[in-house]
Each structure stands twice: as structure tokens, then as C-alpha cells.
Design a protein around this nucleic acid. Structure first.
Lengths: 320, 320
DNA sequence: CTGTTAGCGCTTTCAT
DNA sequence: ATGAAAGCGCTAACAG
């Protein structure tokens, strides 16, 4: 492996001159530049990026922690992050955490070890204290409401959003409303549950735990969910489904079962993924791509902490 | 930032002793070990990974180049790679190339620059010569047939697979068969086109270019494709659709149009994504997760070149 | 404009 | 069992 010193020797100059031409610094005579360039050509030289990282204390690598790689929600988010990263000459290091705290710790440790310059956490499982304690090692930005925390975020107000959706259904005449969600824990889910409970309280309706369907993440989860649903003697007449994938799956099952949508069951999806349009699903559009871009951008703010809320939009189609 | 020398000073030992305890080397007295450990605790010390990389010439980073992040095909592949990477203590560096040669070059350059130890290319655009010329800098493994090339691969024989599918349709009585594909270029697509042309020749049927529908990658691409289809005066009676997403989209449009599937139009998907099951799509199952895992594994073979073909399986459902 | 030199933080030989 | 010291390849301050 040829290095900068070899190059210097070959070109008959000093190492710093070589460094200068490598980094397009001014104050290099045309003659020296030519000589160095020639040496580079002839040796097939390549910078050792690790040496540069060591020297500079910076890697141009951003870590992205997310539970699953294989879900359209995260796919879209990642796409946004990736586009902005490229634009800024950063690369992404990916961590599939599966919501394992131990995996999340590893990522945080990489920030500490300076292998990444900053960290984006798309959905977390670990404690806030943990994340905050790593804040000193570099920017950390989350995709959930962190307004009383010391880390940046780009988020959707899931409390308000859920309330809006619930009231929308209520106005359409629904009394028994349930919802489907990936997991019950996590900031976003807790927000939604709080909204749900408060909504119920406001309208003097009882809280009935089985109306919350957990583990609804992928298209195929609709099947298991609907089995539960069909066993109920008083099933909900309307469902908020926090993933369009699952909403589409449910709709599909209803169609097979001759269950009329929206008459027998109203369905509201979330995200406005392509599948929602195809299936004429009423849904809330989330600007995931845009969120991804901003997640990256806030990563570049070393010292300040930002909180940015993103708007959500109801797309009325045929399932309510 | 405290470093190994500070630690040594605090513990009253030499830097190499500190290094030894840090790396669990033998031959360290219990006394020294304790002292060092205490120093580490009290200082919140963290290794500088870049220094280690520089010293060792290895990063435990694998680059993954893929055109789109936001597609279930690559999602599943990535998931397989990611699982195996974690198991082997590697991290993934992601590159969304959008099939831009320039982006692919960047990735290759990172291999050369030793920022990654090896490279997985999920779908390439650039020339073979280009890839082969970077082979000396580290293992490169592709997800397409490389049997006459000097890089490893885990692949599906798309030529044979397509031929099988075509014959299957032919036996079902179809004379006018068309297909939908993401792009016409690239090894896999060229294989498929070759199979298609040879199939036609064998059965004495004319090659009709409009029966090949390009740009079919995402669910939403089905719409544009079907517009073309519906304008034809002699449209195909059967369609091979190289992505279940698009196949599902087409099926959906047919349903809306009262076009009977499979009677008016037979549809065969590829991948066996969850959506295929939901929609009762006849499809060819690809072991994408497994392919992902193996892609990673071959990355660990520094010197040998491997070619592994993966089997595909027909899943008969209701669209043929 | 240019070369020398001092690190960046770590691992590892070598001598003790 | 341990420490001194030699780098890994690069950048930038400094002195010319």
C-alpha cells in the first residue's frame, strides 16, 4: 500500500505538499502539483480514510438505529435520511435493533467511540436517561416527541393526531372504536393510548382493553388480528390502524368475508403508503420522507437542540 | 478525551499493559489489571475506534450498495444481510445508488480507501471490468450470476426460472404472454429477456416489444402499466410480473375493471412477498432472506471466489 | 510556496 | 509480567 510519504519521495516534494494537492489547498506551485498528480496516477494511490478519521476526529458517518429494515414505514424514512446524507457527503451506518436494548446500547457506544459523528434513532426501546447520557458524545436525533428532553427530534404529535382521528370517527356516528398498533410501549404508542383513554372519558364510554389490538405491523398481521376481532360479540364498528399495511390486510379480509367496509366496519389507516391509494383507504398522510430528511439535517447541529413537529393530513377515501 | 496514555499514568503502568487489559490479553498481573480497570471506570474512558482501525487495517464494516431502500425486495435482502452481520459483529454501511454509476464508484472507492472491509452489491449498473478492478482491495459479492467473473455471488438463475414460468403459462394454454420488469438492463433482466426470446423462438411466436412492460417496480407502477395494456388491441393473456408489488397492483386494477383473473388475464408474480399471499397471487418464491445471509457470509472469504445458486419455488394460488 | 516535524490513539515487538 | 518505543497514514503548525 503506497502512502503519502512514498508519493512525496517520488514527486521529489515534502509530505505536506502532497497533502495540499490531495486536499486542494492553495499555495502549491503548478510544478509541484503536476509532479504529485503524476505520482498519484502511476501508483494507484488511495488515501487511508482511517488515518484521516483519526487525525480529524470526524468520520462523516451517521448511525441510524431502527427496529426493522423490512417495513415500508422505515423504508420511506430511511430513504429521506439517505437522500439528505448523500447531499451532504455523509454515509449511513445501519443498525437493526429489533427493539433490543442491548443493540441500542451498542449504537450509543459507537457514538462514544467516535465511529459515527451523530446518531439517528428512528424508534427506541431504551430509557431516556440512557440516551441523554450519551448526548455529550455527539448529536442524537429522535423521531418522537422529545420536547422535555435534551435531544433533538422531528416528530408527529401522535396524541393530537389520534384525537383528531377518533373525533372524526365519532362524528361519523361510531360508538365502538378500537385501534391496531405495533406495540403498546414506546413514546408514540403511549401518546396514542393516552389520547384514546381521554377520548373515551370525554364521551363517557368505557375503556375496553381488547379493543386495542397489538402486534399489528405487517400486512400479514391482519389475519391474526381479525381472528380475534371476529370472535368478539361486540366488535368495534370502526378501527384506527396505525399502519396502512395492516389496514390493507384488514380491508382485504373484510372483502373476502363479505363484511362491508365502511358499513360494517370503518377503517382508517396511517402513513398514506402506496397501498392505501390502491385500496382506496382513508388514511392520515405522514410526511415520512420529509421527516427523514430533517432527521438528518438536525444531526448537523452540534450544539443546539431542536424540536420540530410535522403536520399530518387526512386523506378521505372509501373506508369510512 | 482521555486516552490510553492517561490511563497508564493514572494506573502507574505502561501503555502496553493498559492495552493488554483492554484486549483481554494474558500475562497481566492481577494487581496491574485492577489498577487499570479502576482508572477506566473513573474516567469513563472509551477506545478511539479510528485509531484501532488505522492500526489494524480493518474496520468491521461491510458496505452494502443497493439502488433503492424503499422496496420490499431489497428490504428482505437487507434484513438477511443485517442478521448475519450482527451475528458476526459487523456493521453495515448503506449506499443508495439509484443505479447511478457515479454512486457505485464511490462505494468501490470506499473499499479501496479501507473504510469498509468488504462490499455487497445488491444490484449494479456499472461495468464488470470496473468491479473486477477493485477486487484486489477486498471481497466483493454480488446478487447476480457472476460465474464467468472474478467476484463471488449468491444468485438465482433468472434465465431458467423465467423459462420455467413461461412454459408453465404456455401449458395452461396461453399464446400471448408478456412481462413486466423494473428495467431492461442489468444481468438479471438481460437473462430474462434472453429466456423470453428463446421461448418465443422455440414456440414459433413473434417477438413483440410492447409486451415487455418496463418501469414496473412499485405497487403504484401498475397503473401506468395497465394504461398501456388497455390500449392494446391484442393485449397479452398472461403476464409474468417480476415484483409481487406490481402484480398485486395489476390484480387490483383488474378487479376494479371487472377484468377476470385468471380468465381474461393470468398473472404470475415473483418473490412471494406477504402481499402475494393476501391477494392469492400465484408467484415464484425467492429465498431473499437466505440470500442476504449468504451474501454476508461470502464476504468473509478473503481469498476464494464462490458462486452459489439459490432455488426458486412455484407457489400456485389463484391468478393462473 | 515548501519541507520538517509533531502528534491523532492504538497495538505490538523487544528487551528486561 | 512489563515498559519503552516504533510505527499505522495523515494533517497542519511552524519555520523558512
Amino acid at each position: 500500500m503506497v502512502n503519502i510519504r512514498d508519493l512525496a519521495k517520488m514527486a521529489g516534494v515534502g509530505t505536506s505538499t502532497v497533502s495540499r494537492v490531495l486536499n486542494d489547498h492553495p499555495y502549491v506551485s503548478e510544478k509541484s502539483r503536476e509532479a504529485v498528480l503524476k505520482a498519484i496516477k502511476s501508483t494507484n494511490y488511495q488515501k487511508n480514510i482511517n488515518a484521516i478519521h483519526l487525525k480529524m476526529g470526524k468520520t462523516f458517518l451517521i448511525g441510524v438505529a431502527l427496529p426493522f429494515l423490512n417495513h415500508p414505514y422505515f423504508g420511506k424514512l430511511l430513504e429521506g435520511i439517505s437522500v439528505e446524507a448523500e447531499r451532504n457527503n455523509y454515509k449511513l451506518v445501519l443498525f437493526q435493533t429489533n427493539y433490543k436494548v442491548q443493540r441500542e446500547t451498542e449504537v450509543l457506544e459507537m457514538l462514544k467511540a467516535k465511529q459515527i459523528d451523530a446518531l439517528i434513532i428512528c424508534s427506541k426501546e431504551c430509557e431516556w436517561e440512557m440516551i441523554e447520557s450519551y448526548r455529550v458524545y455527539g448529536p442524537i436525533v429522535l423521531c418522537e416527541d422529545t420536547r422535555n428532553r435534551n435531544v433533538s427530534s422531528v416528530f408527529i404529535d401522535h396524541y393530537e393526531n389520534f384525537l383528531t382521528a377518533l373525533e372524526y370517527l365519532y362524528e361519523k356516528g361510531h360508538q365502538r372504536i378500537g385501534y391496531c398498533v405495533g406495540r403498546r410501549t414506546g413514546t408514540n404508542s403511549e401518546m396514542r393510548e393516552a389520547a384514546y383513554r381521554n377520548f373515551l372519558k370525554k364521551h363517557n364510554q368505557p375503556f375496553f382493553d381488547p379493543y386495542i389490538f397489538e402486534g399489528c405491523l405487517y400486512l400479514e398481521d391482519a389475519k391474526r388480528m381479525m381472528e380475534k376481532f371476529l370472535k368478539m360479540k361486540n366488535p368495534p364498528t370502526a378501527l384506527l390502524v396505525t399502519s396502512d399495511q395492516v389496514a390493507a390486510g384488514i380491508l382485504n379480509i373484510c372483502n373476502h368475508l363479505q363484511l362491508s367496509v365502511p358499513d360494517d366496519l370503518a377503517i382508517v389507516g396511517f402513513d398514506n403508503q402506496p397501498i392505501a391509494e390502491i385500496m382506496s383507504l382513508t388514511t392520515f398522510e405522514m410526511p415520512l420522507f420529509e421527516i427523514g430528511r430533517k432527521l438528518f439535517l438536525y444531526t448537523q447541529e452540534k450544539d443546539k437542540v431542536f424540536y420540530e413537529e410535522m403536520e399530518v393530513k387526512l386523506i378521505e377515501r372509501n373506508t369510512v
